[in-house]
Every structure is written in C-alpha cells, then in structure tokens.
C-alpha cells in the first residue's frame, strides 16, 4: 500500500513513540579469553538451542572490568553472534568499550541502581553467566537470586523459566512447561512438565499439591508420567535427588 500524498495535503502521522518494557537476558562476561567464552557459550546454547536461537542479549562487562581484563568489543560481539545470539546492548563498560559498542551501533545501557551482581561462589572462576532467559509468554525479572511468583494459570503451550526459585499458585496445565534454576513450588495441580535445577543444581526440589505431571526433572534426572508410582499420583509430594535417583515423597498436610 502506498500513501497518496498529493491527494491529502497533510500526511497523517504514521509514527508513534511508545514506551515498552522488554525482558532481555543479560550475559555477564567474566573472562577476556574469547576461546573459553565461545566454548562455554556453545555448551550453554546447545542445552536449549531453540531457546537461545536469535535471542537478544545485553552484555554485562562490569565483572570483566572489575577484574581488570580488557576485551575487544568487536571480537566479543562476533563470538556471541557466532553462538546464535544477537547482542542488543552493553552495560557496565568503560569509555573505550562504550565507544566501540556505539561504533557497532550497539546501544549502551547504564547499570541501573540495585544492579544484579552475580555472586555465586559455587561457580568456577571464568563463566559467562546467562542470568535468565524468558519465554515470550511471561516476563520474569532478571535476578538470579529472586523468586518468581506466578498467580495466573499456566496453560498448555506456555513455558515459564525462572532464574531462581519458581512459585506457582495456580494450576499448571498438561502441555505446559515450567523450568527453574532453583526450586519449583506448585500450590495447585501440576499437570505439565516441571524441571527444577535446570542448570545443574542437584539440591533443587519440586513441591506440588497434586502430582499429575507429564514429566518431572531435577538437574537433568527425569521421570515421565508413565514411570510415576500410583502411590504418589494425585498427592501432595516433594521430589528431590538422592544418589542420582529421583525420590518422590508424600508431604503430609496438616488437617
């Protein structure tokens, strides 16, 4: 369609600036070794290729600068693009890095107050940390230590990812998928798939009021619905990992 500007003397407004908030994963880079970054990125993205494919990402350089490393932004963004991610901004960079980013047409964001510092002692020294990745369905705060609370039903086809613990008050339908790097609590019927400790935390647990799940998993150890014992089905249970085996145990509710 074309606008006929001759007919209408005044062209109607075709542009509008709107303010909108997006939830974008932040990649905290803590090394200047591009080879290591590339390798670890590859490992991360291969865990969930569809999840990361063409995902926008903001690069957090605070850690790298704190450690006194210097990194070439051009080479770094190249590496990240190679892994299938699309850098859409940097933050925590120094003057030189900010300048380089702008030359690459990558916006510079300020570290807003109460910035997310990833203090994770369990992590090895050099890890590009992917703090969070949210599905389009439900936006989640990008704080690895935060608990994500969800009150509306999780319907079939919806996916929820929480960087910390995930607490759900409503039902999780069959065909839905909930994932958390920490624990999962479902104070309702759990019919979909629930994956706790998705980044390898074997201490993570799943708690639910009524177990009817299609699949449950902790740190990659999973059970499908068919493998669930009838004695735990439709019951309030907790699920945890012991010697690489999933243990499903009744939670006895007070009456």
């Amino acid at each position: 369609m074309s606008t006929d500007s001759q007919k209408t003397p005044k062209t109607p407004m075709v542009l509008e600036f709107k303010s909108s908030t997006f939830s974008v994963p932040v990649l905290v880079v803590a090394s200047d070794d591009l080879a290591v970054i590339e390798q670890q990125l590859q490992e991360k993205t291969s865990l969930a290729p569809e999840f990361f494919k063409n995902s926008p990402v903001v690069l957090d350089l605070q850690e790298i600068n704190k450690r006194g490393y210097d990194i070439d932004i051009v080479a770094l963004t190249d590496t990240i693009r190679k892994a299938g991610l699309l850098p859409v901004g940097i933050r925590g960079g120094n003057v030189q890095q900010n300048k380089q980013a702008l030359e690459l047409l990558i916006p510079v964001y300020s570290m807003h107050s109460g910035s997310v510092s990833v203090e994770n002692k369990k992590q090895k020294t050099i890890v590009p940390v992917i703090e969070t990745k949210t599905d389009v369905d439900v936006g989640i705060e990008t704080d690895a230590t935060a608990t994500t609370l969800i009150t509306q039903p999780i319907r079939s086809g919806q996916r929820i990812y929480a960087a910390g613990d995930l607490v759900i008050l409503s039902q999780v339908s069959a065909g839905a998928e909930i994932m958390a790097e920490g624990n999962i609590h479902v104070y309702n019927i759990l019919r979909g798939r629930a994956l706790a400790g998705v980044r390898g935390n074997s201490e993570a647990r799943i708690f639910c009021f009524d177990l009817q799940a299609e699949l449950i998993s902790i740190a990659g150890n999973y059970k499908i619905s068919e493998d669930l014992d009838e004695s735990v089905r439709n019951k309030p249970v907790q699920i945890y990992l012991q010697d690489q085996a999933l243990i499903i145990k009744d939670i006895v509710l007070p009456h």
Partner: peptide, 13 residues
Amino acid sequence: VRDSDRMLGILAS
C-alpha cells in the same frame, strides 16, 4: 479441552 487450554494461554499472553 486441551486445545481450549492452549487457546486460553494465548488469550492470556
């Protein structure tokens, strides 16, 4: 019922 559930998810998001 499953398809309706899916549709409800889309309505909500």
